[in-house]
């Protein structure tokens, strides 16, 4: 299934991860399918912060069965956008 967000298509996994983020950090006013997959998740993008990063990491590990570590040197790349996070999940998921 393909969804369009601000002219950008979401893959099925990106759409699923978008919903996971919205639920994990209670973004009640943000429909998951309006998240721009390439926009920054933190600060100027969705306005999320470090507590949200921990919350998203917990939701990802519970849902996809692998751990996102807080001391991973690549975290700024992994968490840069919905697209980068979804790509990381696709590469490491065990469920």
């Amino acid at each position: 299934m393909i969804r369009i967000a601000e002219g950008r298509a979401l893959t099925e996994l990106e759409s699923e991860v978008a919903s996971l983020i919205v639920e994990a950090v209670n973004l009640e006013d943000v429909p998951a399918d309006t998240i721009d997959p390439e926009a920054p998740l933190f600060r100027e993008g969705l306005g999320l912060d470090s507590i949200d990063a921990l919350e998203i990491a917990l939701a990802v590990s519970t849902t996809y069965g692998f751990e996102l570590r807080s001391d991973d040197a690549n975290n700024h790349k992994i968490f840069a956008s919905l697209r980068s996070l979804s790509a990381h999940i696709a590469a490491h998921r065990v469920k």
Partner: peptide, 11 residues
């Protein structure tokens, strides 16, 4: 099993 305590709830 994994004791998934929400960081937000902990806060």
């Amino acid at each position: 099993p994994e004791r998934p305590v929400s960081p937000q709830q902990f806060l």
